[in-house]
Structures are given as C-alpha cells and as structure tokens.
C-alpha cells in the first residue's frame, strides 16, 4: 500500500489444518492465499458464511493463530513472536454476549483489566469509558449476569477501548443481539470510531450489518477472498456473483 500506511496487512496468507489419524490425515485449507489490508482509521468489513474462513482470518489477524504460509504485518512490521509486544495496541470484541465478560468479575474490573495487564494506572478511566459507551457509573460495581446482552456488549467495547488501541477486531459482535439493539451497538461503534480514530476489522455473516459500519468490504468464500470493494458497491452492484447472492438475500 502506498500513501497511508496500513495498520494490518495479511499478505498471501494460507492456513492449513490437519485432522484425522496419522495415516489418513486430512488437510483442510481454512484460508487460501488471502491478502487483506486495513488502512489507518478505516473499517474493513469481512462477510462470509460459516466455514468460509472468516473466523480463522480473525484469529490470524489477532495473532492467535500462526499462518501456515504468507506474512502478517502490524503497523508495517512483521507480527512479533510474543503477543505481549502488541499488548494494548490491539483489542477485540467477540461474539457471545453471554460469555464476553468473566462472570466472577465486576464490570469495572473487567473494563480495567487491559490496563492492569499493562501495569498502567486506572484512575477515572473506567467511569469515563463506561460513559462513552452509554452506561452509568453505577454499572462498574455490577456483575455480568445483572446486565442485558446489549449492555454486556457495551462493556466489551469499553474494555476494548480503554487502552486506546490502534486496531480493534469486531468478530460477530452484534450477531446474537435483537435487531433494534444491533443498531444501537452499530451506531456506538461508528461514533466511537469517529472520536478515537481506531482502525477496525468488522467480521459478520450479515451483509446488512457489515455494510452499515464498514468503509470497504471483503467477501470470503471457501477460504478465499472473492471480492473486495468500497461499501457503496454493495448497495448497488457487486461484481462477483456470490456477492450479488448475499445482497439479494437481504
């Protein structure tokens, strides 16, 4: 990429899983020659069905899985071998609102955790972050089971933002919520991005949700990226036939 430097680049990434007994080992390609890049301040949407490889892509982008082939670069440099070197610069908001927060920790402790990991002072940041995601100060002392699904995802977002990361992965972050709550959370993500300027990878099977928050959209199918285009294209006429199917299904 020229001009603005990409925060995250996947360059020709392939991930192969092996399964089965030693002599009849099956090889599955979860990702095949996938190249993606997320520019600074940009939201890249990633759409695909289950089994399309988008979950693996998310794990590779977060450094939770090492690719079999290809290169991953964060902020222009190869991914460090030790995750800790990126601590605080990269965060995630994940799928299950029910399990996104540790049930044994108060909301405030959960939000403060990324700071504690870095050994940074917490100060008033928890209250401030809760305020930013539209939750009152009193939520800090509650336990997750006292919160609704939408409120828990708000807390997850506060936790992800507390270290002011450069990059956040939203992996099916709204899929399990009621439709009207989905819009509330999607609006929140848009507003916070304007304020904080983080880059994001927004992964979902729902083209409607992806289209609503992303600047560019990549479509995955069977481990390959079949189309990458500006979001506007996905309101009118995507090029690939499979993308058109996704659009028609809305």
């Amino acid at each position: 990429m020229t001009g603005t430097r990409a925060i995250l680049e996947l360059d020709d990434v392939t991930v192969t899983f092996t399964a089965g007994p030693p002599l009849r080992r099956i090889r599955l390609n979860a990702m095949m020659h996938v190249s993606l890049s997320v520019a600074r301040g940009e939201t890249l949407g990633l759409v695909g069905e289950s089994g399309s490889g988008k979950t693996t892509t998310s794990r590779v982008a977060l450094g939770l899985h090492r690719p079999t082939g290809g290169a991953v670069r964060f902020d222009g440099r190869p991914f460090p071998r030790r995750r800790r070197e990126l601590a605080g610069r990269m965060q995630a908001v994940l799928q299950h609102p029910h399990w996104s927060l540790n049930p044994r920790m108060r909301v405030g402790q959960s939000v403060a955790e990324p700071l504690a990991v870095l050994g940074r002072p917490v100060g008033d940041l928890v209250t401030e972050m809760l305020g930013h995601v539209g939750l009152e100060e009193s939520f800090a002392t509650r336990y997750p089971h006292e919160l609704s699904g939408g409120q828990r995802q708000r807390v997850s977002i506060a936790r992800a933002l507390v270290t002011r990361p450069d990059f956040i992965v939203f992996d099916e972050a709204v899929s399990a919520l009621d439709v009207s709550v989905q819009v509330q959370i999607l609006n929140l993500i848009r507003d916070l991005q304007e304020e904080y300027g983080f880059s994001a990878l927004f992964i979902s099977h729902d083209l409607g949700a992806v289209r609503y928050v992303a600047d560019r959209i990549a479509v995955m199918r069977a481990g390959e990226v079949v189309e990458t285009a500006d979001t506007a294209t996905f309101y009118t006429a995507p090029a690939h036939e499979y993308s058109r199917q996704l659009l028609e299904a809305l």
């Binding site: 990126l86 965060q91 994940l94 799928q95 299950h96 955790e113 990991v117």
Partner: peptide
Amino acid sequence: RDYVTSAVISGAR
C-alpha cells in the same frame, strides 16, 4: 469462552 480470549488478546500472561 470469549473473556479468556479477550484477556489473551490484551496481552495477559
């Protein structure tokens, strides 16, 4: 569970 993954992503040892 997601909260464990989140902690790992945050860089927790």
